[in-house]
Design a protein around this nucleic acid. Structure first.
Lengths: 361, 361
DNA sequence: CTGAAAGCGCTAACAA
DNA sequence: TTGTTAGCGCTTTCAG
């Protein structure tokens, strides 16, 4: 005999019943307003009633509907987070920090990876607007002005990394590229390098320009005028790094060290060098930028300039939060400075043919 | 004279006015229902009216409020995506694929990284429930049963990778670990290896057990009984891989090849080997699992077992979508099989002391 | 301190 | 085909 389980013999909790604040109110013998207050921990609620409410909520395993809450309160408790390349390990590390802080503060985040595609970026922003994000962190190191307007026009608080317009409601995290890059150049110069190449990021990115400028300035500070052939444009990817190194290798005036705009580039450079049979750091030194986790285990471990993801995530969140919570724009006008710092590992050494006596066998 | 810009001399678009469907309706001289229909592209709307509506929408740059839509329609158009470690490059690659497909299909995604912490996981699920996700993809390669119940009880469609209960509304992406792992073992065996070690993932993960089982089985197929000392537990991280290799190195019966449960582990293994002065693949061969992007540029480039992130993302999304769109549970009962495939690069070769004549200098 | 009632912005019957 | 109306689940005045 086929025994069809009928709706009747279901477990006690009748899940079929629609569950909302009203159900809770009825079962706890209070008004829906009281339930709402209880859930929102309004302090004036009578302890006894609150307990009654909580009991019912727990028993029914009730979960309030954020959408309804957001709709009536006007607070979505959502932040957008725009990154350029989620597959570049720098960003997941940043996302992790941002998410953690956001969640701690009762926010959810909508993540989008633009992959440098303006069309995608535009769609992302649109979707964020539809979801009524309360702010967005634009961690793309560069942005198309028109897209920004979409957000700014609606007075959505924004935080940029590195570059962004100076308007009320818009915060900018200023990265001190020069500090770390100068340390890197000086480290190299102290080792005896003069011919220091630079693999930049995509030059349409403001950050790429800033990093390049910091390099040039740092070189000058050491009394070196960089040969233009030492500067080659990469794109922040493994492949870009490898291609850049290939170009560098074809150069007449071969550099003895190469400073890279990010770690992925540096890893690409390392790989190309490996492919060409050059040894790092014996034949050539290389320095990265970011200090992503795997930089510790490249071969050799990468000397790099650290830029703290956590610090960035924290600053970005704080900027957004203060804009949102304080209607007063001035309070939000804090300065956010991100430091960079050289981490010396093993991809840098004396230039070939010098200091042989000092070199570790 | 200080000229304070008064509200009056603002641009034509009076942004101060609250903008909703009603505003559009008024300006387009139609009812709000028509506006709603127009936006939702209901085909019965008169073309003329539709145009009028669109014109106003465009002129005012109106963006509908998803929350309100979701509230009334009962469709949040949100999927949750739970990963275990966003900083493991495998996951960003998966997220990217999932996001892309989701967006194409009008869904947004809520991403959470659990970091293997059950408490975090519980919170994530709770938050997803509050946001009324229509489904969640649990890409953690293992899950605490109780948490799952929270979701299942509410009949939220779920898709698991690799392991999950066989219940209606729950799809499982079956990964064929054995195929790729057998290829790897056979590749090694063909090269002359007999002592093949295995660095597993965290053994509480089902996937770790499956991979280990596939290894054992594949070894047996080659007529090899694995020495228990060849099997050591890792944790899918760089550090875990390094630690595992260290243990392996201390073993009496030293393996000549090591198969790793994922690429991060393999990179850790590579690094430890490098630190101990062993050469890969001359002294020891290593194989990874996942084929993350950087596996191409390790030194040497990593032989690894590919598991397509895109394929997984696609299958996961499809599973969820079909559960959601078709009330009929049976239609959703498709089988999802994920293949794995060996990619031979340069981290594998003959065991030391054999085939010297064949070895590339 | 608690409850009743008025919406938040939108969709979906149902009428017209 | 278009408009009217009743809510979706919740917060928030405003009385009591």
């Amino acid at each position: 005999m086929t025994e069809n389980p009928t709706p009747e013999n279901q477990p006690q909790n009748d899940a079929s019943e629609r569950m909302d604040i009203r159900t809770i109110a009825r079962l706890a013998n209070v008004s829906i307003a009281t339930v709402s207050r209880t859930i929102n921990r309004v302090p004036t609620v009578n302890t006894k009633m609150a307990k009654r409410v909580w009991d019912v909520i727990e028993k029914l395993d009730f979960v309030p509907n954020t959408q309804a809450r957001a709709l009536v309160s006007g607070r979505s408790k959502l932040f957008g987070l725009l990154v350029s390349e989620i597959t570049n390990p720098f960003f997941p590390e940043l996302i992790q920090g941002f998410e953690e802080i956001a969640v701690e503060n009762g926010y959810e985040i909508l993540i989008s990876s633009t992959n440098h595609d303006p069309k995608r970026m535009s769609h992302c922003i649109r979707r964020m607007l539809e979801r009524k994000v309360e702010g967005v962190a634009i961690m793309t190191f560069g942005i198309e002005e028109p897209l920004l307007d979409q957000l700014a026009k609606r007075k959505v608080p924004l935080v940029f990394i590195d570059v962004g317009p100076d308007r009320p409601g818009i915060s900018v995290l200023k990265v001190d590229y020069h500090h770390g890059i100068r340390q890197a150049v000086q480290h190299l110069a102290a080792l005896g390098h003069r011919k220091i190449a630079f693999v930049s990021g995509p030059m349409q990115l403001h950050s790429a320009q800033s990093r390049l400028a910091a390099y040039t300035r740092s070189m000058n500070e050491c009394g070196i005028v960089p040969d233009p052939s030492w500067i080659v444009e990469g794109d922040h990817t493994l492949e870009g790094g490898a291609a850049a190194m290939e170009k560098l290798l074809a150069q007449e005036n071969l550099a003895t060290a190469v400073l890279c705009s990010n770690d992925m580039t540096a890893i690409g450079v390392l790989h190309k060098l490996y492919r060409t049979g050059k040894r790092v750091p014996d034949d050539i030194s290389v320095i990265g930028f970011d200090d992503i986790h795997i930089a510790e285990v490249t071969m050799p471990p990468l000397t790099t300039i650290q830029m703290s993801r956590f610090e960035i995530a924290k600053a970005a969140f704080d900027a957004l939060q203060s804009q949102v919570e304080s209607p007063n724009a001035l309070i939000g006008k804090r300065e956010f400075n991100i430091k960079t710092e050289l981490i010396v590992r093993e991809s840098t050494s004396y230039p070939r043919g010098t200091m042989e006596h000092l070199r570790k066998k």
